[in-house]
Design a protein around this nucleic acid. Structure first.
Ligand SMILES: [Zn+2]
Ligand SMILES: [Zn+2]
Ligand SMILES: [Zn+2]
Ligand SMILES: [Zn+2]
Lengths: 136, 136
DNA sequence: CTTGACCCTGTAGTTGCTACAGGGTCCATA
DNA sequence: TATGGACCCTGTAGCAACTACAGGGTCAAG
């Protein structure tokens, strides 16, 4: 499979595939006589794993650890569990932060009654955290 | 006020203050004989506005527009309202995405029963979106 | 007179890509 | 046989919003 086919098969930008190879996330594939990259099914599976993990918000370094783990099928999987749990906790933390933010922004946006910038309550609120009701 | 004092007064890293000046978000301050930056209260207020807006998640370009607006007190403030509303919508969108992600991650994490990597349901789920119950 | 805290400029690193520029290769059609 | 277009290659630079130096200058206290 050439890089364009792998790109279509996995929904991954060609430049991104070469980037993953460069940073060592994907192994260097064989080359054809014309120096074209030539991929097989294991490459496709690995890239699918990477993309899906990225879609779920894992960082490249987390994915590297997860791949190391799955490359070594005898290893205990508790590290995978730990990485995923920690990531879940981060997502929950982020949701909590954004929820605070959303509430604060809702209050701020609701204050504008139109008029000139000098009297705008939105601009006033942005300039002074003391108008806020929450930490953020 | 020297840059260190402004830094402490606003809770902003010194390098960040210089960065804001470089990109034209803060005006160039006067200099002392020793070529030290010298700030006054208007600088402090402007930086406070920038930091608070950043804390609320606005981008630098959005903040630039908001500052332009507040520099021109006769202008109609509806643009500020539009920027803030659009930002609020983006935050809500992000919360919705992360909530989907959280639910999916919760399912994935809950599947691990321990054991070796070869049998790990977490690793399996990461490698194949068909195990997922939602788009994400 | 030295020590330490502070300041300066300019550049490079971070994350995870994406977008070229400037080439080479391959295959079908005229 | 030539040529056009689709594909591939490497290497570098750009994005956001900082952050972290390196390598220097300034200043006040002891
Ligand atoms: Zn308004
Ligand atoms: Zn606030
Ligand atoms: Zn497991
Ligand atoms: Zn999925």
């Amino acid at each position: 499979m050439k890089i364009g086919e792998l790109s279509r098969a996995t929904g991954t930008n060609i430049e991104t595939i070469r980037y993953y190879e460069r940073i060592g996330l994907l192994p260097e594939p064989d080359r054809t006589a014309a120096n074209y990259r030539s991929y097989g099914d294991p490459h496709r599976a690995r890239l699918t794993f990477v993309r899906h993990s990225r879609d779920l918000g894992f960082t490249i370094e987390e994915i590297r650890s997860l791949l190391d783990l799955s490359d070594d099928p005898e290893r205990d999987c508790s590290e995978a569990d730990r990485i995923a749990s920690r990531h879940l906790a981060q997502v929950e933390e982020k949701i909590a932060q954004l929820t605070l933010l959303r509430d604060e922004l809702t209050r701020i946006v609701g204050r504008c009654r139109g008029g000139v910038a000098a009297d705008c309550r939105v601009i006033e609120a942005l300039g002074d955290h003391r108008h806020c009701e929450s930490a953020h």
